[in-house]
Structure formats: structure tokens, C-alpha cells
Design a protein around this nucleic acid. Structure first.
Lengths: 112, 112
DNA sequence: CGGTTAATTAACTGATAAGTGAATTAAGCA
DNA sequence: TGCTTAATTCACTTATCAGTTAATTAACCG
């Protein structure tokens, strides 16, 4: 679990355009032009986003004639998810505290 | 699930110093000075990282005399994790493919 | 009150990121 | 071969980010 890989993965996910591209690719392979269509953005801008995603290992590219379709590779997300999951116990603790608090409130209200 | 919130959460997690700060805070509350100690970094730099984490809602701050201790708030991570988990089926698919491949290899080796 | 410690703000530098338009590569097709 | 389409690279602008030092705020303590 390399630090640089986590850096790249999280940085790639920090941009809403790139998250949208990944969502689109979850539905299937797509060309750059089709990926660019929903965004108010030129083709070179999309190419740059794809480079970021590729460098993070989140997509891979092939070649068919003059098209260079992209497809999703979700594996690096596993690592990112694993990092986050280490802290799940903390938010679960806070949910437990919230539950306890709500129960306490309800009991008090019943007593009034 | 706001886009800007996800932007801020993932951007906050993209920096190794900030991830280390969160790890440290998982062990308990800490002052800025103690957080800064393990890093080759001045106090103002740490203050800036804390602002990023606070803006993302990942930490909260209190005040005791001249100390302003930080504590973890892992709740926004839940949202980030939920986003990632949507793609779990893709990386599970690649594991399945890897399993199939390894099984195939083993069978071939047995035949030799 | 004056001094010390914790932390922040202010002002600045250098690097990186997101976007643009223009030119270029690469493939398919008449 | 020449034209069209897909995508990229190039050169540039603008904005943001990570870090610095120096100055400032805030609280405690003798």
C-alpha cells in the first residue's frame, strides 16, 4: 500500500469531472469525444483528466482505429477504501453516541 | 451527498501529511505542536493543513487555555466511502478474473 | 505587569493544476 | 493522394497549494 499511490488515487477523485468520468465508464467503454460531451469543456481538457486517471491506474486505454477508448479499472479504489475503512469504527462510535443521546432525550420527554 | 463536500473530503485525503494527522488523531485528541512534531514542517504549515481538514469537516477543534486541541470527526469519510463502494463490483470482477487465471495456470502446471 | 508558550495571521515564493486555442499526429475514406 | 474525424501535444494564462519567515494574538505564570 504505497503512499504515492494513495496520493494519486485521492487526488484523482477530488475533481467532480473525473468522478463523473468514472461513473460514465462504469456503464461501459467510451471514446474521449463521448466522455467530453456532457461537460462544458474542450477535448484537450478531457485528455488531461484522462491522463490523471490513467496515472492513478483508475482507467486503461485501448485503440480502435482513430479512437482511443477508455475503460474503468477500479482496483486502486480498493486500497483507498481500505484506508478509509480503518476509520469506520470512529464514525460508528459517533453514531452509537448519537443513538444513546437520542434515546436519552426520548426517555426524558416521556418523563415530562 | 454534496459534490463540493466530496471534493473537499477527497482533496483533504490526497495529502500524506493530512492522512498522517488523521491517523494520529484516531489515537486521541492532540495539540498543534504535538501534531507538528513528527513532520519536518513549521507550525504555520500544520495550521494550514488543519484548516483544510476542518473545512472538510474531518476534524473539530476546541480550546483549553492557549491550546486548541484537534479531534477526529470521521463522518464525512462515510460519504466518501459510500461513493467508492459503488465501484466495488468492478474490482471484485477483476479479482474473479485473477482467480480464474491462477486456477487455469495451476491446472496447466499439473498437466505438465 | 513582564515574560513565556501555543497558535495564528500576513506576506511572500515556487510548484502544480485546470483550462484555453492553435498546431500536430493518426487513422479511415473518397 | 487529399479530406475528414479523433485525439493529442504545445505554449500559454490563471488560480490554487504547500511551504517559508516574521509579526501578532491569546492565555498562563512568576
Amino acid at each position: 500500500m504505497s503512499t504515492e499511490q494513495l496520493d494519486r488515487t485521492f487526488a484523482a477523485l477530488a475533481d467532480p469531472t473525473r468522478r463523473a468520468i468514472l461513473s460514465r465508464l462504469a456503464l461501459g467503454e467510451s471514446s474521449v469525444k463521448d466522455l467530453a460531451r456532457p461537460f462544458a469543456m474542450t477535448a484537450p481538457a478531457v485528455t488531461k483528466h484522462l491522463k490523471v486517471l490513467e496515472h492513478a491506474g483508475l482507467i486503461q486505454r485501448s485503440r480502435t482505429a482513430q479512437w482511443r477508448p477508455c475503460s474503468l479499472n477500479a482496483e486502486p479504489l480498493k486500497e483507498a477504501s481500505a484506508w478509509i475503512e480503518e476509520y469506520r469504527k470512529f464514525w460508528e462510535q459517533s453514531f452509537d453516541r448519537l443513538d444513546a443521546y437520542l434515546t436519552e432525550i426520548q426517555n426524558k420527554e416521556k418523563q415530562l
